[in-house]
Design a binder for these strands. Structure first.
Lengths: 102, 102
DNA sequence: ATCCTGTGTAAGATATTGCTTACATACTTC
DNA sequence: GAAGTATGTAAGCAATATCTTACACAGGAT
């Protein structure tokens, strides 16, 4: 989960995720969206995303198609949810303890 | 937002956030939860969290009390939400375009 | 005033990131 | 099989993170 959060903390990688959100894209097409950066740099970002489980790769002939993997962000989302819901539950419990006190 | 995501990518900092989730805690009490780490290290983590807007500090006499700042994670949560909801909307639009085609 | 307690900051060592350019590899096409 | 296209990997570099120990400083107590 650390990996996923760290991966997503980088704006370039978030942009890549948005690109591959609704379908497969070959590495070259992805790199073309970042003209200010070398192609290997984008390839390395793709590696980070892949290692973090945020994208899946599928070799097709010459190319390698990348696609978003929604499950990759589940733990991260769970953490955020926990931060709010657990807190509410705890505050509720505290309030009830308070009521029982004379 | 990068800052918040990066801050939350570290397990120690997530643990700190859970500690200060339901109330104020002085820096020393927080550091006491991490016996394997020096106190200054924890202090530096608190700095990162504070810079990222994830906690707020309140000096009280000798101490400095830390408390969770829920708004600090809003952009991060919005990004996760966007990843799913936007995708659904786009797939829906694509399906409708598909229907209109003979 | 002096001392203790709680806390942040400085300096420095080491590891990790995020890039670059140059190279290796694998399909595809002629 | 030779050349071209799409892509990953290696090496190296500058910047940044994350620790450590030593120090500074403010507030409360004596």
């Amino acid at each position: 989960m650390d990996q996923a959060l760290r991966a997503v903390a980088d704006p370039t990688r978030r942009a890549i995720l948005r690109l591959v959100r609704d379908g497969d894209l070959p590495a070259g097409a992805i790199a073309a969206h970042f003209p200010s950066m070398s192609r290997p740099a984008v390839s390395q970002h793709l590696r980070v995303l892949s290692d973090a489980g945020l994208v899946e790769v599928r070799p097709v002939g010459n190319r390698r198609l990348y696609r978003w993997r929604p499950e990759g962000l589940r733990d991260a989302a769970a953490f955020l949810e926990e931060m709010w819901s657990d807190r509410l539950a705890r505050l509720k419990a505290a309030a009830e303890r308070e009521e029982e006190r004379p």
